[in-house]
Amino acid sequence: MQRDEDEDAVWRSIVDNYGERPALDGEAGAAAEPAAEPAAETAAEPVPDPESTPEPEPDWFSSTSVDPEDRFVPPPAPPLPRPTRDRLFAWLGVFGSPTVLLVCLVAGISLPRLIAYLLVASFVGGFLYLVWQMPRGPRDPWDDGAQV
Score class of each variant (00 low, 15 high):
residue 48 P to W: 14
residue 12 R to T: 14
residue 32 A to L: 15
residue 20 E to S: 09
residue 81 P to V: 10
residue 71 R to Y: 03
residue 40 A to Q: 10
residue 14 I to F: 12
residue 102 L to T: 07
residue 121 A to P: 02
residue 136 R to T: 14
residue 64 T to G: 08
residue 92 L to G: 01
residue 89 F to Q: 08
residue 62 S to F: 11
residue 50 P to D: 07
residue 79 P to W: 03
residue 116 A to W: 09
residue 122 S to C: 12
residue 22 P to F: 03
residue 79 P to S: 13
residue 123 F to E: 10
residue 41 E to G: 13
residue 5 E to W: 04
residue 62 S to I: 05
residue 99 T to G: 03
residue 101 L to E: 01
residue 102 L to R: 14
residue 115 I to T: 12
residue 7 E to A: 09
residue 118 L to W: 06
residue 51 E to R: 07
residue 16 D to A: 15
residue 123 F to D: 02
residue 85 R to K: 14
residue 108 G to Y: 06
residue 51 E to V: 02
residue 123 F to S: 07
residue 14 I to A: 08
residue 106 V to W: 12
residue 135 P to Y: 00
residue 9 A to F: 01
residue 54 P to E: 06
residue 86 D to L: 15
residue 85 R to D: 07
residue 56 P to V: 10
residue 55 E to D: 07
residue 105 L to P: 00
residue 70 D to K: 07
residue 49 D to F: 04
residue 91 W to D: 00
residue 21 R to Q: 14
residue 49 D to V: 10
residue 130 L to A: 10
residue 111 L to M: 09
residue 19 G to E: 04
residue 25 D to T: 06
residue 53 T to L: 07
residue 105 L to C: 00
residue 124 V to P: 06
residue 45 E to N: 05
residue 33 E to A: 14
residue 112 P to N: 14
residue 57 E to T: 13
residue 74 P to A: 12
residue 126 G to Y: 05
residue 82 R to G: 10
residue 58 P to D: 02
residue 100 V to P: 00
residue 44 A to Q: 10
residue 10 V to L: 13
residue 135 P to L: 04
residue 130 L to I: 13
residue 52 S to D: 15
residue 9 A to N: 07
residue 6 D to R: 14
residue 34 P to I: 12
residue 6 D to P: 00
residue 92 L to E: 03
residue 133 Q to M: 02
residue 72 F to A: 09
residue 29 G to L: 08
residue 74 P to T: 06
residue 11 W to E: 01
residue 47 V to H: 06
residue 15 V to H: 05
residue 19 G to I: 02
residue 8 D to E: 11
residue 24 L to I: 01
residue 10 V to S: 06
residue 27 E to F: 00
residue 95 F to N: 08
residue 55 E to S: 09
residue 11 W to M: 04
residue 98 P to S: 06
residue 62 S to R: 12
residue 136 R to N: 12
residue 34 P to K: 15
residue 136 R to F: 13
residue 58 P to M: 06
residue 90 A to I: 01
residue 97 S to F: 00
residue 83 P to Q: 03
residue 28 A to Y: 14
residue 98 P to N: 06
residue 79 P to D: 15
residue 106 V to H: 07
residue 93 G to P: 04
residue 95 F to H: 13
residue 94 V to W: 11
residue 125 G to K: 03
residue 64 T to I: 11
residue 132 W to L: 05
residue 61 F to C: 06
residue 124 V to N: 05
residue 12 R to Q: 10
residue 22 P to G: 03
residue 51 E to K: 05
residue 78 P to N: 05
residue 111 L to S: 09
residue 111 L to F: 08
residue 106 V to N: 02
residue 44 A to E: 13
residue 32 A to N: 14
residue 61 F to G: 13
residue 16 D to C: 03
residue 86 D to I: 13
residue 125 G to E: 09
residue 64 T to N: 14
residue 37 E to T: 15
residue 77 A to W: 03
residue 4 D to K: 09
residue 6 D to C: 00
residue 102 L to H: 06
residue 75 P to G: 03
residue 41 E to L: 08
residue 15 V to R: 11
residue 112 P to D: 15
residue 59 D to Q: 12
residue 18 Y to H: 10
